[in-house]
């Protein structure tokens, strides 16, 4: 496999975590422009634990996910009951807050002969745990996709459970959900924490591939794209956002020969899709039809 294909697959895999994160929030009826905050928090936390304190790579990824989940819990505590445009605006502010905070975040410690750690606007260099571990980039890419597959399975099973049902009810109508016994605040809050941890996991995985992070990785476009991924792929299944990422990145890459025009073509395609399939390629109705047909064949 060429380096280019591997790098593309890593990018798709990593961004799929952020897309799933945004997707989970869409399922509880909230639009977030700020999942990139948890992506960088997870990335920085994972990088700090491996590069500065010598944690092994898998532990670093877990620390990143936990740190992002904790940050999401703090945010959820303040915003769990907010909905609609208020939540969207709050999440946008959160994303920018994370970016600006990282601009002035310095935490460098001597590692070997050098100082390593986040250095404000200069970024965080030397996250080398992947390369010192001797793992090949191809193997790392496969590991990312393995983790993604597990995450997808976990979410798919969750959404089919009564818990998942409660989550979808909160997304459709909070008042009615409360009336059938769903604890709306708790369900929404826990979903936000889970979504934050997922984005954080993506951040940790990315940090160790890139070996370098900077506040610019919390750019708002990542949050906007991760929303678009879910809308392109479809809201009916967690497969939707993953397909959305592959579609988005694959299409953008294959249009490279169009040079400057590719964003125009791409934007047009996204718009056409939103008009023709407002809830994505795999929307709820399609998923329902497919699962019924499969169930019918089994019976």
């Amino acid at each position: 496999m060429s380096d280019y294909v591997v790098s593309l697959l890593v990018r798709i895999g990593v961004e799929a975590f952020v897309a799933l994160s945004a997707y989970l929030l869409l399922v509880i009826g909230r639009i977030s422009f700020g999942q990139q905050a948890f992506f960088v928090i997870g990335g920085y936390a994972a990088g700090i634990s491996t590069a500065l304190y010598g944690a092994p790579l898998p532990i670093g990824i877990i620390v990143g996910a936990l740190a992002a989940g904790l940050a999401a819990a703090l945010f959820a505590g303040a915003m769990a009951r907010a909905g609609g445009i208020y939540f969207a605006a709050g999440s946008l502010a959160r994303g920018e807050l994370a970016r600006v905070a990282l601009l002035s975040f310095h935490h460098q410690v001597p590692v070997g002969a050098d100082l390593t750690g986040p250095a404000g606007a200069d970024g965080f260099r030397g996250i080398r745990a992947l390369f010192t571990s001797g793992m090949s980039v191809t193997a790392y890419m496969v590991a990312i996709w393995g983790l993604l597959a597990l995450t997808f399975l976990a979410i798919a099973l969750l959404l089919r459970s009564r818990w998942g049902e409660a989550i979808r009810m909160v997304g459709e109508d909070e008042t009615a959900a409360a009336a059938v016994g769903v604890r709306v605040g708790r369900v929404a809050g826990l979903t936000m924490v889970g979504a934050g941890a997922l984005a954080g996991m993506g951040g940790g995985l990315f940090a160790h591939y890139a070996t370098y992070l900077e506040p610019g990785h919390a750019d708002v476009m990542l949050g906007v794209h991760s929303l678009a991924y879910a809308f392109i792929g479809g809201l009916g299944t967690p497969l939707g956002p993953i397909i959305g990422v592959a579609f988005d990145i694959g299409l953008l890459e294959s249009f490279r020969f169009l040079a400057g025009y590719r964003m125009i073509i791409f934007g047009g395609l996204v718009m056409a899709l939103l008009v023709l399939r407002p809830r994505g390629l795999l929307d709820e109705v399609t998923v329902h039809r497919v699962t019924r047909r499969l169930a019918g064949r089994r019976a």
């Binding site: 009564r162 008042t175 009336a179 016994g181």
Partner: peptide, 28 residues
């Protein structure tokens, strides 16, 4: 309130449209 034994319906229908009929009852 529901757990105590008081259930209610809504004046304007508020179903979960994306769920199937039986799924609408599952959580309740």
């Amino acid at each position: 309130v529901l757990a105590a034994g008081v259930g209610r319906t809504f004046q304007s229908i508020r179903l979960f449209g994306g769920l199937t009929v039986w799924q609408n009852l599952w959580v309740a």
